[in-house]
Amino acid sequence: MYQFITGPLLWFSFVFFFVGCVVRVVLYIRGLDWRLDRVTYTKNISFGFKGAVRSIVFWLIPYGTQSWRANPVYTLIFFIFHFAIIVTPIFLSAHNIILMERWGFRLFMLPDAVSDILTLLVICCAMIILLRRIALPQVRILTKPHDILILIITVAPFMTGFFAYHQIPDSEFWTLVHILSGEVMLVAIPLTKLSHVVYFFCSRAQIGIDFGVKRGGMKSGGMKW
């Protein structure tokens, strides 16, 4: 079992994740149509490029946009959540030790205490996001089971990894569940709303180009996000 999920299934998950994301991006770009979208994607490229970069960068900076500034608490939770989700698995010492054993190289490793804190932050932020979904009427009305499901899919590897690392009985079981849940998340990314991993950049770039070449960018110097 362990051999299978850390061998072929892991490979499958990673390949599915990468290929799935690439396919998503390619299909997105191929589906853009200057006539239907009413955006000249291939004209005035410098303005389009500038618009796309502005549209992505400002939204990646905490409190970099009016929207982020108007929602200070949510913004804080949002950025901590996403930062911890990306940084923790990549720089976790245990993952890098496996990388070293299998492929002979490793990345920078976070101290375990820091990884623990980041993992707990992911779990706490997810709880707050969930509570927010239930508590705020304007979010509750939008929420569907899919939203709860992807939150569970996202948090599961962190929670199970935490249990496994801290030897919560049965540690072996939690390790297996941790690996499986990680694989589920990788597979889910191209298939669910988690595809925003790539679509965030596509969509932000598209609307950035729209404002950059068509809706004012050539007269204003760029949208003030």
Binding site: L36, D37, Y74, L142, S203
Partner: peptide
């Protein structure tokens, strides 16, 4: 007429509700 831009918009809405207070009707 409904191609990847609009279909993607409809799919990836994370239903965070940040658009609520931007709308004068709301």
């Amino acid at each position: 007429t409904c191609k990847s831009r609009i279909r993607t918009w409809l799919q990836i809405c994370s239903r965070c509700g940040l658009c609520a207070e931007s709308c004068f009707f709301y």
